[in-house]
Design a protein around this nucleic acid. Structure first.
Length: 911
RNA sequence: GCCCGAGUGGCGGAAUGGUAGACGCGAUGGACUCAAAAUCCAUUGUCCCUUAAAGAUGUGCCGGUUCGAGUCCGGCCUCGGGCACCA
């Protein structure tokens, strides 16, 4: 019997499904382990070979952990709400649900062919009302909560109402609260709710007709679709993620994530510790305090002007009569400009004088106040003190408008550019003179606090997440409006189902598509018309997998206290500042309210790299239909043309197939080298237009799923991006055939009950040891290499012993489960190989016969010595003396002591 | 501009500070075969050399630490990724 992967894979995939082989329950007798993949958005294009990379890695780990005796939760589902299905619906009228369901079945077929060990009973789909009920539920909880800074956690809003009505809170007194109208009370509470509605500057994408979150925008364009995005003031639902900024930052340290990813999150959260300072200002005789934020309190003596953000509410107050017109012109220009510049990426220096002045609190000097768009309204206080000598942006501004520049650090040269570095010795700075910059920063902070000029303050870049989208295909908000006041729907009304509508476009009057729904009301009150963004459904899905069919809770206390959180999460880096922040926020919120028992959702995170495409090219001689082979193309004038990689094998073009590919190539002719047409190649993104997409189904057809799995892992470290290159796939396929031949010679089953030899045991146990450490480090490629060596050695030894071959099957099963199931059955087992235990590593079988000792004299190495591992200390000493003679090392010193160090070093002390 | 990460054969990639290039691909030669496929064996960093032995050289560049550096330290160069008026 030859290795017939087709029937083997079909047989075992069917059997796994039929026996629900991978179904898990909360088995308290075993330790749990939760391995999660980032669930996919089921796009119409189906899977290409890049998608399963992470899934294969996690599947191997899951199967390995099962062999190691863990109860492994390894679920899969679909992130099914999203823009592409809706865009498609707008064009075709096809309901997004239909498209989505079709795509999901296609995905499922493709996933099943690769032989994953998912517990499909736990599948979730974010667009399923039974699922999004809990997304809506979490939103209601956030609406009903506020962040109590004293307790440093989210608390029921009723506690805040209690405070407000008895002693007042913030700048609202109890009298004010108690005499407020319902509408006013609602507005006050909106300033505190975790999920709140508020006016804010948003990323408005005209092309998509919706607002977008910061992480959905890149370089001024929408990540989905690449449409221009502009800033616009709108009232939107938001999540108070910023309240969690410090906790999100601090607990990063406890996570086992890659440094680069943690760093990305740190940058995104952007903690900066500085000082808030009050500056007196004068505008036409009116005095007013203006608060600014700075991280360089030490540079106050160099402040020569102040700048306000154009959107700052201080602008009208601080604009003098005579400057009013020029200020208004500037504000109008900024509004237009930012849209353009966000796309063009070039920032030109611009600004306008406000007509008012500030007073430097340390020097008493009067300084002009300017307005410029290089100051952002959304960060700090929207006002800054400008120190042109030591801040490059202030410097550029001062140069442009001829404002004074005062250097504060001895010997620094500010004639060409500012001196931004935080080093040197202070000068021109009153009481700070002579201090180092670091000392001066602290001294200035102390001074400011002591003299009540301001206070230490930590700012974060992290903004609240804008949570409404003017789209159809998302979760409806469980919110209705009563006299214009947003009110939560009772929990018993959940899920609030997405209504049917006749068209998925925005309504004629520019309202979201839900405005088209008939009777989109509750008890006669209008319901919210926007829907939730993509990250809503993906923020807590890992919790739902723990208890996916529970209709009374997102996750029951029992299930949650067993599975706790995700032990290993595998997915791409592209979610670093989106999903992975929101999920952590969402989880912390649920943790604060006591619904989940762990503060962090994902203990360990592995970022799989991307698999890029490897495109092939043919070279057409200009003006002809003649194609010249790669090695000869420099002799001709050619155009490079992408050729479908299915027509190419190992860079050799199938010229006949090429002629059939497109009508215009039917009469193509070729200039060959050595009788072959060699194609050029390049590494590019995998995409349809470059004809370089490799479909995993095709690989499964030609080589089998086991080969695909092994090959994707053999390509290199999981974290690394690498091009898909079919060249090497024959190697791992050959390995599997060789592996098969250890068990079968044609139809003859070779396995015997012979006692294994010492050599065979050594091969086996070296492999066990290697696999154990490598898998724990996700170094799958080296494990596979070790396997290849072991199989080569065993087949050279003619091994037939069951005591060797049976553990070998178990060891390989996480990587190539189908072939291993087949062989395990042939060995006489009726249970799946997945139920076996990982073979125990016995180091005594692997010891080498001899040991190499580097020999050092007084710490200096002179030579290495190879001795039997059984050699005694006395024998080693003797060997050293003998070696000393033959090595002609003429010492005029005598050996005092020979020290044999366990770490295989011999140190010799001479005198 | 700032912050990460990475540079090793023709290619993908291995190397707790200790024989650089494991393993695989490709290539070359050979065995088996009428032939092909499949399979197996050998060689394969570069240079010098008819060949071999032997040697020299070799992990982006320059320097340092060390008996010993792909690995550690300092300074550059290149590539990839992230952030980008965040005061």
């Amino acid at each position: 019997m030859d290795y017939d992967f087709k029937s083997i894979e079909k047989k075992w995939q069917a059997r796994w499904a039929e026996k629900s082989e991978f179904k898990v329950t909360e088995d308290k007798s075993k330790p749990k382990y939760y391995v999660l993949d980032m669930f996919p958005y089921p796009s119409g294009a189906g899977l290409h070979v890049g998608h399963p990379l992470g899934y294969i890695a996690s599947d191997i780990y899951s199967r390995y952990k099962r062999l190691k005796g863990f109860n492994v939760l390894h679920p899969m589902g679909y992130d099914a709400f999203g823009l592409p299905a809706e865009q498609y619906a707008i064009q075709t009228g096809q309901h997004p649900e239909v498209t989505t369901t079709n795509n999901i079945s296609r995905y499922r077929e493709q996933l099943d062919r690769i032989g994953f060990s998912y517990d499909w009973d736990r599948e979730v789909r974010t667009c399923d009302p039974d699922y999004y009920k809990w997304t809506q539920w979490a939103f209601l909880k956030m609406f009903d909560s506020w962040y109590d800074p004293e307790k440093d956690r989210a608390c029921p809003i009723s506690e805040l109402v209690e405070k407000l009505s008895t002693v007042g809170y913030g700048d609202v007194s109890a009298e004010q609260w108690n005499s407020s109208s319902e509408k006013q009370k609602s507005d006050i509470l909106m300033n505190y709710r975790i999920a709140y509605q508020g006016e804010t500057s948003v990323n408005w994408c005209e092309g998509l007709g919706t607002v977008l979150a910061n992480d959905e925008v890149k370089d001024g364009l929408s990540v989905r679709g690449g449409f221009p995005v502009e800033q616009k003031k709108m009232t939107q639902w938001q999540l108070r993620v910023s309240a969690y900024a410090s906790r999100l930052l601090d607990s990063l340290d406890s996570l086992d994530w890659s440094d680069s990813l943690k760093e990305m999150q740190r940058n995104w959260i952007g903690r900066s510790e500085g000082t808030e300072m009050e500056f007196d200002t004068v505008c036409e005789g009116r005095h007013r305090k203006v608060t600014i934020f700075t991280t360089r309190a030490d540079t106050v003596f160099g402040v020569t002007f102040m700048v306000l953000a154009p959107e700052s509410e201080l602008v009208p107050e601080l604009t003098s009569q005579e400057c009013r017109q020029s200020v208004e012109e500037y504000l109008a220009a900024v509004k237009k400009k930012t849209e353009r510049e966000r796309i063009s990426q070039t920032h030109s220096v611009s600004g306008v004088f406000s007509g008012s002045y500030g007073i430097n609190p340390l020097t008493g000097e009067q300084i002009p106040i300017w307005i410029s768009d290089y100051v952002l309204a959304g960060y700090g206080t929207g006002a800054i003190m400008a120190v042109p000598a030591h801040d490059s942006r202030d410097y550029a501004f001062a140069r442009k408008f001829n404002l004074p520049i005062i250097p504060l650090i001895e010997g620094c040269d500010v004639s060409e550019q500012s001196f931004d570095a935080k080093e040197g010795t202070m000068c021109n700075s009153g009481f700070l003179n002579g201090m180092s910059v670091k000392q001066a920063i602290e001294a200035a902070k102390d001074y400011v606090e002591e003299h009540h000029l301001g206070r230490r303050k930590t700012n974060y870049r992290l903004r609240d997440a804008i949570f409404s989208r003017q789209r159809y295909w998302g979760e409806p908000f469980p919110i209705y409006y009563k006299d214009g006041i947003p009110c939560p729907l009772p929990e018993s009304e959940l899920p609030l189902r997405l209504p049917e509508i006749d068209s998925y476009k925005p309504s004629a009057d520019g309202q979201p598509p839900l405005a088209r729904a008939k009777d989109w009301t509750w008890n006669g009150y209008p319901l919210e018309k926007s829907t939730m963004p993509g990250f809503a459904g993906s923020s807590a899905y890992y919790l739902r997998y723990m208890d996916p069919h529970d209709s009374d809770a997102l996750v029951s206390r029992e299930a949650n206290s067993y599975w706790r959180n995700v032990d290993l999460y595998i997915g791409g880096t592209e979610h670093a500042t989106g999903h992975l922040i929101y999920s952590r926020f969402w989880n912390k919120f649920l943790y604060d309210l006591g619904y989940v028992c762990e503060d962090e959702p994902f203990r360990k995170l592995l970022n799989q790299g991307m698999i890029q495409g490897r495109s092939n090219f043919v070279y057409r001689v200009v003006g002809t239909n003649q194609f010249v082979s790669y090695g000869l193309k420099d002799n001709y004038q050619t155009t490079q043309i992408h050729v479908d990689i299915s027509l190419v094998r190992n860079d050799r073009l199938d010229t006949e197939a090429f002629k059939q590919w497109r009508p215009e190539y039917n009469d193509a002719s070729f200039i060959l080298e050595n009788g072959e047409y060699i194609c050029g190649w390049a590494v590019e993104k995998m995409s349809k237009s470059m004809y370089n997409v490799v479909n995993p189904d095709l690989i499964c057809d030609t080589y089998g799923a086991d080969t695909l799995r092994l090959y994707e892992m053999f390509l290199g470290p999981v974290e690394q991006s690498k091009p898909w290159d079919t060249k090497g796939i024959d190697g791992v396929n050959r390995f599997l055939k060789k592996f098969w031949r250890l068990f079968y010679d044609k139809d003859k089953f070779l396995v015997s009950d012979l006692e294994p030899t010492a050599g065979e045991l050594k091969v086996l146990h070296k492999l066990i040891g290697k696999e154990q450490t490598d898998i724990e480090n996700f170094s799958y490629n080296t494990t596979i290499s070790a396997f290849m060596i072991a199989v080569n050695e065993l087949s050279a030894m003619g091994t037939t012993s069951r005591a060797i071959l049976e553990p070998l099957v178990v060891l390989l099963s996480p990587f190539a489960p189908h072939i291993c199931e087949e062989l395990y059955e042939a060995l006489g087992h009726s249970e799946s190989v997945g139920r076996a235990s990982f073979p125990e590593f016995r180091s005594e079988y692997t010891l080498e016969d001899s040991v190499t000792y580097p020999v050092q004299f007084n710490g200096k190495m002179r030579f290495t010595l190879e001795l039997p591992k059984s050699a005694s200390v006395a024998e080693v000493e003797e060997a050293v003396r003998a070696a000393e003679q033959t090595a002609k090392w003429t010492a005029d010193k005598t050996i005092a002591k020979v020290i044999v160090v366990p770490g295989r070093i011999i140190n010799i002390v001479v005198k």
